[in-house]
C-alpha cells in the first residue's frame, strides 16, 4: 500500500499542529529553560564536583535530554487525545497500514521534539556552556534522535493500551519524572549512594545524557560506544513493543 504518502501525511499534520500551537510550544520549552537557568544559578555555589565545570555547564546536556524526554513521551501519548477527540477513528478506518501510521506519527513527533531540543542545544552553544565542535554537535544530534525516537515509541506503546487520558497523569508522575530525575541529568552519578546508582544505571536516558555530555565536551562517565549500544537497543525495544501494541489497538 502507499506507505510513503501515508507517512508524509501524518508527518505533515504533526508539523502543522506544531507550528500552529504557539502556547504549547512556549509551554513545553519554558519548563526545561526554567530548570537550566534557575537550578544552574541556584546550585552554582554548592556544586563542587569539578572545578573546571560550572553547574550550569554540567546540567546543560541533561536539560536537552529533559526536553527530548518530555516532548517525545507527550508526542507518543498524543494518540490518546486523538482517541479522545475521535480523530483516531478517521485515521484507523483509512485504507492504509498501521505500520505506516505509526511511522508517520513517530517521525512527526521526533521532528518537532528534535527542533525544540536543537533550540536548547543552540542556547548551550551560544551561551558558551558547552564546547563547540562540528563533529561533536553531529554526535549530539545522533543521541538526541535516539532518545526522542525511543521515548516516542514508549509513549505510543502506553497510549495504545490506555483508554482515557486519566492515566496520563500517572505516567507523568510515575514514569516521566522518575526517568528524568534518575538520569544523571541533574547530578553526577558516580557519587550517588549504591541503591540510587543501580536505578540510574538501569535508566536508558542516563546513557543518552552521558552520550551528549561526551559529544559536547562535558564530564562523561561511560564509553560513548556503550551509550550508543544501549540507546540503539532501547530504541529497537520500544519501537518493537510500540508497533505490536499499536497494531492491536482499537479506536
Amino acid at each position: 500500500m502507499n506507505f510513503g504518502p501515508t507517512v508524509y501525511t501524518l508527518w505533515l499534520r504533526e508539523m502543522k499542529r506544531f507550528i500552529r500551537n504557539r502556547g504549547r510550544l512556549i509551554g513545553s520549552m519554558s519548563f526545561p529553560l526554567l530548570f537550566l537557568v534557575v537550578l544552574g544559578a541556584g546550585f552554582k555555589g554548592v556544586f563542587t564536583y569539578r572545578h573546571d565545570v560550572s553547574y550550569m555547564e554540567f546540567i546543560g546536556p541533561g536539560i536537552v535530554g529533559m526536553s527530548l524526554l518530555f516532548t517525545s513521551m507527550f508526542g507518543g501519548l498524543a494518540i490518546l487525545w486523538d482517541k479522545q477527540f475521535g480523530f483516531l477513528k478517521e485515521i484507523l478506518v483509512a485504507p492504509v497500514s498501521r505500520l505506516s501510521i505509526m511511522t508517520g506519527q513517530t517521525l512527526g513527533t521526533v521532528t518537532s521534539s528534535m527542533l525544540k531540543g536543537t533550540v536548547f542545544l543552540a542556547v548551550l552553544v551560544f551561551g558558551g556552556l558547552v564546547t563547540f565542535h562540528p563533529l561533536g554537535i553531529l554526535l549530539a544530534l545522533v543521541f538526541m534522535f535516539l532518545i526522542s525516537a525511543s521515548f516516542v515509541g514508549l509513549g505510543i506503546a502506553f497510549a495504545s493500551r490506555m483508554t482515557d487520558p486519566q492515566g496520563f497523569q500517572l505516567i507523568m508522575n510515575f514514569l516521566i519524572m522518575p526517568v528524568f530525575f534518575l538520569s544523571g541529568a541533574l547530578f553526577p552519578i558516580d557519587q550517588l549512594p549504591e541503591w540510587l546508582r543501580v536505578l540510574t544505571r538501569l535508566n536508558p536516558l542516563t546513557y543518552g545524557v552521558d552520550g551528549m555530555r561526551y559529544a559536547l565536551g562535558g564530564p562523561y562517565q561511560f564509553s560513548p560506544l556503550l551509550n550508543l549500544i544501549v540507546l540503539l537497543g532501547f530504541w529497537a525495544a520500544t519501537t518493537f513493543v510500540g508497533t505490536i501494541l499499536f497494531r492491536k489497538m482499537t479506536a
Binding site: Y8, K16, F85, E90
Partner: peptide, 18 residues
C-alpha cells in the same frame, strides 16, 4: 472525529491523502 486544530480544508486534504 475531526482534527479541531486544522482547518476544514486541511481536514479534507488529510483524508484525501490517506
Amino acid at each position: 472525529s475531526l482534527d479541531e486544530e486544522l482547518t476544514a480544508q486541511e481536514n479534507l486534504d488529510f483524508h484525501a491523502r490517506l
